[in-house]
């Protein structure tokens, strides 16, 4: 039961990672990375590491995604205001 669950989650994980790498749009790939982080938290729960899963959900999925979004908004906003 557990091993089947882990296998399914791991396949999803690989899918999310591939999406993060292969999407052309950076916003899409950042969203995929957030999904990837959340799936990581789920895998940690199945691997009997609830404390790590909490940290991963807050830091890995939440905080890092927000860092990326802030970076993206700062870099693309600057690009628009600049005359080409």
């Amino acid at each position: 039961m557990e091993s089947a669950l882990i296998s399914v989650l791991l396949v999803f994980l690989l899918g999310a990672a591939s999406a993060a790498v292969f999407f052309d749009s950076i916003l899409n790939s950042i969203i995929s990375l957030g999904v990837f982080g959340a799936l990581m938290a789920a895998v940690f729960v199945v691997y009997q590491a609830p404390d790590v899963a909490m940290a991963q959900a807050v830091v890995g999925a939440g905080l890092i995604t927000s860092f990326f979004v802030v970076t993206l908004s700062k870099t693309s906003a600057g690009a628009k205001s600049e005359p080409e």
Partner: peptide, 24 residues
């Protein structure tokens, strides 16, 4: 920014390995 995404995925794989090592 995509390169940072790549580094994050590399690091995540090591985290998974660490937790897997602990798992019984």
């Amino acid at each position: 920014i995509k390169i940072v995404v790549g580094f994050n995925i590399m690091e995540a794989s090591l985290l998974l390995l660490l937790v897997k090592m602990a798992y019984v």
